[in-house]
Design a protein around this nucleic acid. Structure first.
Length: 356
DNA sequence: AACACGGGGGA
DNA sequence: TCCCCAGTGTT
């Protein structure tokens, strides 16, 4: 990105073309029914690293249960996680609730409309802050994310690595100049829609692009080469023996995960890390770690699950115990029906199919 | 600046 | 399989 990146770029014509296209082509999305900053906020958090089609049903369910900041602030965290179940990145839900509680306590339930207070809220980074300020409060603030950088790396022919924090900052600096001052809300949403429907990662539909004549990458035929993004390394595999332990009442043991880290505070079936062939040690490990005496039964199956940074390989075994009381307070005996009441990660929902 | 943090979908 | 995606917090 050089000093003349914006030279010969016709900002006002660009704004006109993109806003005109948006007016005719904007997607009808549930969070676009009004400009309620709380709804904008919830939608933006859900949309982080997550596709629109995946988010829509979750957004409806969430708004049905927590229509206002007060409803979310008062809710039980486990209930919020249950509503978020399957959406992933669960810290988003926990941070959102924590931030909403702060809004209720410090700001009388009104989502702040300035960068300082808004940006200090848990889970609100530069992107979400800009999205709320522009979409809900119509302020000319940039909302730069991966989608945004893809679109503008092509339009402005930016050939630097967009995974670098420095490059994102540069995009934000440029956006202060490029964003429409008359209608920043529509401008940012127009870029989002363009990135989602026309300026896609692969095979962008430049023939239908409303700003094709502004696009330097298209002019040079290099739109498919941009953006430049450094490779991320592949996931490490972690193996576990996961246990479906039942007692004589037919109850099964579940365990609440630690309150920080991966899948924080969600529930799962007990998992024993196995580096090699330690199957014989599983019963000992469970006795020492959980204080539960079990008898290992047959293997029920295997579950593989991929996260962004690691892979789980779970060998699922049935087991039995004579106990029906547990010392460890993060462990619990529940019936099959009661499993529905707890938030589980998708990997352990797969395990439930092996239970019957 | 690098890494932790989920899940689904498309090619 | 690999890559993509409306990012933020921690170290």
């Amino acid at each position: 990105m050089s000093e003349n990146t914006l030279q010969s770029f016709n900002i006002s014509r660009f704004q006109e073309d993109i806003l005109d296209w948006y007016e005719k082509n904007k997607r009808d999305l549930p969070w676009r029914q009004d400009q309620d900053p709380y709804k904008v906020w919830v939608s933006e958090i859900m949309l982080q690293q997550t596709k629109v089609d995946t988010v829509i049903p979750y957004f409806y369910k969430f708004m049905d249960k927590y229509p206002t900041v007060y409803d979310l602030a008062e809710a039980d965290e486990q209930d919020v996680l249950k509503t978020w179940e399957g959406l992933g990145y669960y810290s988003r839900a926990r941070n959102l609730q924590s931030a909403v509680r702060e809004v209720v306590e410090k700001y009388d339930g009104v989502v702040p409309n300035n960068p300082e207070e808004l940006g200090s809220l848990k889970g609100v980074g530069s992107y979400t802050r800009g999205a709320i300020l522009s979409i809900a409060y119509n302020q000319p603030e940039p909302a730069v994310d991966g989608n945004f950088m893809r679109v503008f790396s092509r339009i402005l022919k930016v050939e630097e690595d967009i995974s670098k924090a420095k490059v994102k900052k540069l995009f934000e600096d440029y956006m202060y100049e490029i964003i429409s001052k008359e209608d920043p809300s529509s401008f940012n949403q127009a870029i989002m829609d363009l990135g989602a429907t026309i300026c896609t990662p692969k095979s962008p539909m430049c023939m239908f692009c409303p700003v094709q004549e502004h696009c330097r990458a298209y002019a040079e035929g290099i739109e498919e080469e941009l953006p430049i993004k450094s490779k991320k390394k592949k996931q490490k595999v972690k193996r576990y023996v996961a246990l479906l332990v039942r007692n004589e009442k037919g109850q099964v043991i579940i365990e609440q995960r630690p309150e920080s880290g991966l899948l924080a505070n969600l529930w799962q079936f007990p998992m024993v890390p196995v580096d090699n062939l330690e199957l014989l040690h599983v019963e000992n490990w469970v006795r020492k770690e959980y204080g539960v005496e079990i008898d290992l039964d047959e293997k029920r199956g295997n579950v593989k699950h991929v996260f962004s940074h690691l892979k789980w390989n779970l060998d699922v075994y049935a087991a039995s115990t004579k106990q029906d009381v547990l010392e460890n307070d993060r462990l619990r005996f529940v019936t099959i029906e009661e499993l529905d009441e707890y938030p589980f990660p998708v990997s352990h929902q797969k395990m439930m199919d092996l239970l019957k």
